[in-house]
Design a protein around this nucleic acid. Structure first.
Length: 555
RNA sequence: GCCGCGGUAGUAUAGCCCGGCCAAGUAUGCGGGCCUCUCGAGCCCGUGACCCGGGUUCAAAUCCCGGCCGCGGCACCA
């Protein structure tokens, strides 16, 4: 009916007919229905059976034209970026690619006092972005653009759209909240007076807190915070030096001013940002109006929360300062560096961000969800390695060989090569997981994965005694033998597995097969029957590996 | 409190603008089966949602009103 509006007047009659038809069809037996469908309307079946897979695509950007889209990611370099920041970063990048446009990276470091930039954060953020696969075309740092902001505000002061306010904040608020803002004395100053005061601000005649520059807005705007908002304030940089420009400037633009001005000057067409910036759009639009600029399209989205993780920068900093964490890349953190360190891939993060998209409501993702996405990516490329954590020795007797070499593939697909494990006879010792001991007590026959079957002889004491049973997998199946991973005792490496759990970092010790010595930091492997882990460090002693430190990612 | 914005399965998301192809799709989770020398992966089957109440309409997840719940903002932070 959407397609044939001319039928609408007959809707009532048609509905009656349709009801009757449906009832009639429903009275037929299911088989009869199917038969009729096949005979007369096979095209419907075809349509139904067609697989409808479609790559999850981002919704189109309003007003976007190919080749003309400019997005930006504008982090504050007071800390590294976390999963929440990855959202605007990745979306800005994806849209830039989608529309073959440009992306700008802009460091917003205009508050040396309360959000003092971290000197190393500029580089660390770029490294994180690069790791995420985000590529930008231009790069700016706001603290290096101060003359530009000064120039624009001068113009606004000249035109009477801004004024210097040298009164205490309480007094301003008194006027603002009583609906008398239009009578606020500083607001009534002439442009000449304002320019003179502005120069005095620049000269350092006002101390911190003694003067600000306000943008004139609707003095009775329903949102009080919008009314004559602050564009510049004074920061005593002799006490709070800026890591990049030291004490060169004492008059600093606020976020709303600097970001608003830059978006225009840099040609940004589309701003993708979280909803806490909603009111900022309203504020910034005044500057745009006064300057005759066109405000970019804005897409606001909700917060992205990773359940069980701390996303707040200030809390993360606190944990860092208290020495509770191991660094900015602590695997318990949802910082990009932290997620990377515990074995989450950039591809998984990207997929997650695209899945969440640009929806306005908050999204709360569980780690299980992120892990599931990661698992699929990592599964086909992660080597399988055996470890016993914590280890329990098993003595195996009656081995029918003096020496036997087992070649074990690194991946069930056989595509990741293999390693060799040598076992001597007639007696040897292997480590198995302590948790598998109870398995051995229950089942008489056990298969050592990819090797041979053993039969438990004595399991009364801590030390399990077993003997060779058979070689083939078929026998193992016949005896319904559990298949477990194992590590030869004479070629075992120490392993320390760090398992992040909430705010705890649980340390588990065990042994891992010799093959782990060849791993490099950053490798993601699967410890068989334990889960996917990332190699954090391979500790070398006298030229050979002694211990491997791994961080648990997920099952 | 005041401004603004939202509510689709356990979670996330599609559909909402432009009412009917929606007895609501997809992913993940969960349950079951197959396969596999891992408790992983893969394949198959199943499970499960339109916040509530009114209204408009032949027809409402979609439009309107009210309620409830949630979120954001209310800085000389970004």
């Amino acid at each position: 009916m959407a397609e044939k509006p001319e039928l609408r007047p007959y809707a009532r009659e048609i509905v009656a007919i349709v009801r009757e038809a449906v009832a009639e069809v429903n009275r037929l037996p299911l088989d009869e229905q199917k038969r009729l469908l096949r005979e007369k309307y096979s095209w419907i079946l075809e349509k139904l059976s067609k697989p409808k897979e479609q790559e999850k695509a981002l919704p189109p950007l309003p007003g976007a034209e190919e080749g003309k889209v400019v997005t930006r990611f504008a982090p504050n370099p007071d800390f590294v970026i976390h999963l929440g920041n990855a959202r605007p970063a990745i979306l800005s990048y994806e849209y830039k690619v989608m529309y073959k446009g440009r992306m700008i990276l802009r460091f917003e470091d205009t508050d040396p006092r309360t959000k003092t930039p971290l000197p190393e954060a500029y580089e660390l953020i770029k490294e994180d972005l690069e790791w995420l696969g985000v590529r930008w075309d231009e790069e700016y740092i706001q603290s290096l653009r101060m003359p530009i902001y000064y120039q624009i505000i001068r113009e606004l002061l000249e035109k009477g759209h801004a004024y210097v306010d040298d009164r205490p904040g309480e007094e301003f608020r008194k006027y603002r909240n009583s609906g008398k803002l239009s009578e606020y004395p500083p607001r009534l100053r002439t442009p000449e007076e304002n320019l003179e005061m502005w120069d005095r601000m620049l000269e350092g005649r006002f101390a911190e807190g003694e003067a600000v520059v306000r943008i004139k807005t609707d003095p009775n705007h329903p949102d009080p915070s919008v009314r004559d908002w602050v564009a510049f304030r004074i920061v005593d940089t002799s006490r709070h030096p800026h890591p990049l420009v030291g004490d060169r400037y004492i008059v600093w633009p606020t976020y709303n001013f600097a970001a608003g001005v830059d978006d225009w000057l840099m040609g940004v067409t589309h701003i993708l940002r979280a909803k806490e910036h909603m009111q900022n759009t309203t504020k910034q639009k005044y500057v745009y109006e006064y300057m005759g600029w066109k405000y970019p399209y804005v897409v606001h989205f909700g917060r992205l929360k990773l359940e069980g993780f701390i996303m707040s920068k200030s809390v993360l900093k606190q944990l860092l300062d208290q020495g509770i964490s191991t660094g900015i890349d602590d695997p318990r953190f949802a910082t990009i560096a932290g997620l990377r360190r515990r074995g989450i891939t950039a591809e998984a993060i990207r997929k997650l961000i695209l899945e969440v998209g640009t929806k306005y409501t908050d999204a709360s993702i569980s780690y299980a969800n992120l892990a599931a996405t990661n698992r699929v990516i990592v599964d086909s490329v992660a080597r399988r390695i055996m470890a016993a954590i914590p280890p329990a020795p098993v003595v195996i007797e009656e081995l029918p060989w003096e020496k036997r070499v087992f070649e074990i593939p690194y991946h069930p697909s056989g595509e990741l090569g293999s390693r060799k494990i040598t076992l001597e006879g007639p007696m040897t010792v292997v480590y198995v997981s302590q948790s598998d001991i109870k398995l051995m007590k229950r089942s008489s026959v056990i298969r050592l994965m990819e090797a041979f079957n053993i039969e438990v002889v004595d399991a009364k004491n801590d030390k399990i005694i077993a003997r060779f049973h058979s070689l083939g997998l078929e026998e193992a199946r016949r005896y319904r033998a559990p298949i477990i991973q194992w590590v030869p005792a004479d070629a075992a490496l120490h392993i320390e597995l760090l398992v992040p759990e909430g705010l705890d970092l649980i340390q588990r010790r065990g042994v891992v097969e010799q093959a782990a010595a060849e791993l490099k930091q950053g490798d993601i492997v699967q410890l068989v029957r334990i889960g996917f882990v990332r190699v954090d460090a391979v500790e070398i002693e006298n030229g050979s590996a002694r211990k491997v430190v791994m961080i648990f990612a997920h099952e």
